[in-house]
Design a protein around this nucleic acid. Structure first.
Lengths: 208, 208
DNA sequence: GGGAATATTCCC
DNA sequence: GGGAATATTCCC
């Protein structure tokens, strides 16, 4: 049986921002990318170790800006389990899609990624899981954005509630003002009627 | 090397509500539970197949309402990889915790779950991943609840905005009312002054 | 091709 | 013990 490649699980460890406040740029790329790169490098060796023809199973393409799985069956049976915890070609494809690789042709199993090139292992850190589409928003950004949405809504609510309170206070003051005007009106009318009465009385007195 | 148990991945398939609208009660339990149960069942066999003493590594407890890992090292090395894609005891423990199993003692590796009992494989469907605590809210419920929070906040906002609009309308009407009162007051005062003037004039006329 | 569930790992 | 990331699987 083929020897098993045992590697420490990478996870998100070491990719966090440091206490010094540096940007959260990952220092080491996701294990999937490293394993896929290593798997191709391994087959680039030209040494006569009897395994040199595994290039017919999988290898970098001619330009070195992508790779080709020439024999998916053998790739799944012999290569995959040495690097991953499975031997399913579709799981491998799923990961490629997750990391943004593109199948270049419907006829061959060639895959490309802008940052996945022969001799450029350092570029792997630039590749990250696809998580930025609205449909597959990253959970941490999602919850963050949703919390922001909640937070924003709550902030808006606070402002609206404050405005409501002020409007109600204003209404109360206006209603008091109106009540005072009504009272004043009453007094004025009363006053007027007094004068009118007097006027009338005077008139009557004159007439008498 | 120990033979590898290859099992179809279970996932969530077959556990969905049918088109007929039946409740989404799972028909088959999560693979982790089945594998753990099978692993214990396997060691219950008393046949003289030379593997009968694996009970000293792991087995149901005396009451059959839990199980004990007596030799974590051997369990990890020989049992785990035959049922799972790893040989890490801690990963096994992580899964037990995920499914709500409890460690019964700090001294032994005995675990229990209400629905995990010898001879009761049918109870496994009753066990589900822990996802209901506020701290470990399931992502679908979380996003749902957060969407609800947003939705609630937005609903509140709508109501507050509506109330604000009404309050402003009311304020405008009250201010118009006050303007009319002021105009009325002016007229009344004018009126009064006229009467007073007349009165004065009359008085003066009388005096002359 | 990707959504979503479970599995595995790492970390606190 | 559990949060959270990546990995693997299943399904549409």
């Amino acid at each position: 049986m083929a020897e098993t490649v045992l590697e420490l699980y990478h996870g998100s460890g070491g990719n966090k921002a440091t206490a010094a406040g540096q940007p959260p740029r990952p220092r080491c790329p996701p294990p999937f990318l490293v394993k896929t790169y290593d798997l191709l490098e391994e087959n680039e060796v030209d040494g006569g170790d009897g395994d040199g023809d595994s290039k017919r199973i999988v290898s970098w393409n001619a330009e070195g800006n992508g790779f080709v799985v020439r024999s998916p069956a053998e790739f799944s049976e012999f290569i995959l389990p040495r690097f991953f915890k499975h031997n399913n070609f579709s799981s491998f494809i799923r990961q490629l899609n997750t990391y943004g690789f593109k199948k270049t042709s419907s006829k061959t199993w060639e895959f490309k990624h802008e940052k996945f090139r022969r001799g450029c292992k350092h570029l792997l850190v630039e590749i990250s899981r696809k998580k930025c589409e609205p449909s597959m928003f990253p959970s941490y950004l999602k919850s963050c954005s949703e919390e922001n949405a909640v937070s924003n809504s709550m902030e808006e609510n606070r402002e609206l509630i404050e405005e409501n309170k002020n409007l109600k206070k204003e209404r109360s003051q206006l209603q008091m003002q109106i009540a005072q005007f009504k009272a004043l009106e009453m007094k004025l009318l009363e006053c007027l009627s007094q004068y009118m009465d007097n006027h009338q009385n005077n008139k009557l007195r004159k007439l008498c």
